[in-house]
Design a protein around this nucleic acid. Structure first.
Lengths: 163, 163
DNA sequence: TTGCATGCAAACTGTTTGCAGGCCA
DNA sequence: TGGCCTGCAAACAGTTTGCATGCAA
């Protein structure tokens, strides 16, 4: 696994282990026990919008939170079930997770070189998808639109190599 | 694995083991050895547009073609490299493959209940994606747009259950 | 004291690979 | 004969699970 994230980003925060985006009461209302591990995990998403299980494991360890991979997967599964986080399969390797923001939806552009993920949202595309589902007699549940490409940073880097 | 495909579809064909969509010369030109296994595998795509490794294994076995799973994966990887077939990750379980038709592109609607896959294509969406990639300074390579929903058949079935 | 959260290790699934045997040009 | 195709079994990665322990309400 390549950990191409700024691992210091979360270390520099003062209150490791507290998710800003959702307070304890909200969590409890959803039937989630706000354990130390769950809170620490959620806290990571303040700094990193997209994380996979291994990155979470590394970041927690780096932040001094002792936790097993099994627990991380259990927490992730639980949070996903309760619709607190969302799972993506950007590649055929490991799954990536991000926080669910109510009434907010977006799609993703993924750099196949550095795995950077950029979010975007296009109303026209959204509407067209609904139309298409309707035309094909599908009751639409959700969708995933991923654009894969090379970001500017990597493009520049590749140019340099070719000199 | 649920083998929800008409397994007889391929048995009823006269010439099992011959892919209509691509002749032997074309394959050789692409550096693919047209072995019995490769041809039989490709032949399956005449009847089934979307197949995963396990379905391929079952169908081949059913058609009397003895082959190991390892070989299937090797053939699939090879064909994908040579751009004869295309790999999709519709769900986080196994990968699905389909034939590449030159100059033809489409996206997919997947029924989360029966795994049926319907293809569609929308020029406006395609163009918007290019625009979005450009706006975000990505050199676009490809994309995957999957709409997940419930197809009419399954909707009806579910209604029945609820009676 | 009860129940849920956790760690550990084993299991499991999809996929890949090393190695030895076999087939065909 | 040489090279590639193949099968087998083992390896591998990501993920899940059974069981025993332990913490917390």
């Amino acid at each position: 696994m390549i950990l191409d994230i700024d691992i210091n980003a979360s270390r520099n925060r003062k209150t490791i282990g507290m998710a800003e985006s959702m307070n304890i009461i909200e969590l409890k209302n959803k039937g989630i026990t706000p354990t130390k591990h769950t809170m620490a995990l959620l806290g990571l998403f303040n700094m990193h919008k997209h994380l996979d299980a291994n990155q979470i494991f590394s970041l927690l360890q780096y932040n001094g939170v002792e936790v097993s991979v099994a627990t991380i997967y259990r927490i992730l599964t639980n949070l996903e079930t309760k619709n607190v986080i969302q799972k993506h399969n950007f590649n055929n390797e490991q799954a990536t997770y991000e926080l669910v923001i109510p009434n907010e939806h977006h799609d993703h552009i993924i750099c196949v070189s550095c795995n950077k993920v950029v979010e975007f949202m296009d109303d026209t595309i959204e509407q067209l998808q609904n139309k298409i589902a309707l035309e094909n007699n599908f009751h639409i549940l959700h969708h995933s639109l991923n654009i894969y490409g090379i970001c500017t940073d990597c493009d520049v880097r590749n140019d340099t190599y070719q000199l």
